[in-house]
Design a protein around this nucleic acid. Sequence first.
RNA 1: GCUGUCUUAGCUCAGUUGGUAGAGCACUUCCUUGGUAAGGAAGAGGUCGGCAGUUCAAAUCUGCUAGACAGCUCCA
Length: 632
Amino acid sequence: MQAEQGCTVYDAAKQISEGLSRAAVAGAVNGTVVDLTFPLDQDCSLEILTFEDDRGKKAFWHTTSHILAQAVKHLYPEAKLAIGPAIDNGFYYDFDMEHSLTAEDLREIEGEMKKIVKTGERLERFTLPREEALELMKQEPYKRELIEELPEGEEISFYKQGDFTDLCAGPHLFDVKPVKAIALLSATGAYWRGNEKNKMLQRVYGVSFPKKSMLDEHLEKLEDAKKRDHNKLGRELELFTTSDLIGQGLPILLPKGARIIQLLQRFVEDEEQKRGWQMTKTPLMAKSDLYKLSGHWDHYQEGMFVMGDEEKDKEVFALRPMTCPFQYQAYLNRARSYRDLPLRYSETSTLFRNEASGEMHGLIRVRQFTISEGHLMCRPDQLEDEFKSCLELTMFMLKTLGLYEDVSYRFSQWDPNDREKYIGTPEQWDEAQSTMKRILDHLEIPYRIGIGEAAFYGPKLDIQIKNVHGKEDTLITIQIDQMLAEKFGMEYVDSDGSKKNPYIIHRTSIGCYERTLALLIEKYAGAFPAWLAPVQVKVLPISQNYVDYTTQLVAKLEAAGIRVEHDTRNEKIGYKIREAQMEKVPYMLIAGEKEQEAGSVSVRSRRDGDLGGMPIDDFIGKLLIEVQTRAR
RNA sequence: GCUGUCUUAGCUCAGUUGGUAGAGCACUUCCUUGGUAAGGAAGAGGUCGGCAGUUCAAAUCUGCUAGACAGCUCCA
């Protein structure tokens, strides 16, 4: 737009419309988000951001975090300020203070925040030279640390609202008035700068909106999310349970949960075999010697369950945390030719990882889990095609499960500044990562980069998924490894007679069954598609008089391989239907006098409602097609 | 592992300043013999997560311990 003397982003918004200027929370000048007071003194591209825009939301929430800090300072003047950014679904602020905040304290702070909003204070930005900035923040050790680390020549900016001033790069709202609805959600611990060696601060999470109705809607969504939570729903539906005697992170899969995993596993194993994967079955444990060779002993020991003491015992064993070195022994069974490659080994492998006690969560983070694992040994010229085929297999799995739309991609790289964590040389890492980058770019995978997220032996493509609470986890991973083949002496004889190390792709096709089940529970809110449902059909007689007839129906259904439950309880039909609905069964078959006479059943579909009466064979045919096509 | 909250019947939860436990649903039995979200009656079920301590007396107070939840750190 054309610049005018003294014109700000706010003025520009006002020129467009009065309404827009009222809704405006920030601007974006040449793509950089700025305050509404930002002067437009050059020709530039300008966007007016409202709360509807994600960048506008961030400015809105960031300002709310300042209001939070101001309120905390009013109530707890001794609190030291750390940082307070906007996040994807709200904001937080970290404080260092003796008193640990309770739920009642949060309500009190909310009240103070509302008072601050009422003052309608403006946010004023100013900058200071380093020395003066340090002087201004002399009571705030964390802010001083941040200032001291700002590079020479960087502008040190502050935002002031009433009696509160914070070191901050901005941008912010014009004033605090638009923050009409605030909810502080929780107070928890968080390490200063995310480092567990640093002091633990108190983090207050919250969210805010320009309208009360928007906040109510948001809070309702959070409540709904809780209802879908696999950890609650999975227990209610009797898919799994846990036992204090067995221990943390060791879920017990009950018959219905085990059935779903069995169905997934058969599907995966069959599909992998169709695609040229050969199944191995390797031991669940090995001597420490194996892990010393693989590097796990040095780089992953705290994540392993080790049995025995190296000081005292002749042999020390450890439960396997991954299958790689075991399947390598299968490769090493005999000399390999370049003609043997690619060699694709799959395994439904149970793994054991000694997760820290605070990490366990339902079926998502556990200490023992079973993964659809595989290792693929290939020549350099085969690497890209094989990587692609691994990716295609996972895509097929995700699409079949209905999770394809919900994932994002992370290219997990090493951290060159943390050499302790990784094996290999910078040259090897550069080569592995540039190979992977070339493949990902060629396949047009829309990835983001995760520094320091690589495995200790190589880079990964992680397929990430968010659970119902918005927390992200890795569902699937495909990794390129150039290091371990050399360590294990894995070779093939090339066409020219020379010996070479193969590339190894580590991959999973559907992830680990427990975690995948957890995400499916949340995806479908427990109402699984018919092909996965532990109970596909519930047969309900109208009264005891028709139990004989429904028993015949059940026999027919079972003969067709359908998973069926027969409710013969002496209860009202309405009651039985309610039970079946709560169990989220795909089909209910209801039978009484009229059905018995016609040799039919009344079919009620969870998805399509009342389908009326039909002959039992017609229903069986319909359901079998639905199962075969894995319809959702 | 760290910070905080929590643990009472199968489930969801009450239980007032310490005086050895209650509700609803589920469960069992009986009555009701029925058509799309709760028919009626009776009964059974708990060393209040575990172990110590304080006290005449602990579900309640203190310590330790095991789990659960949220977040941090870590990770499939």
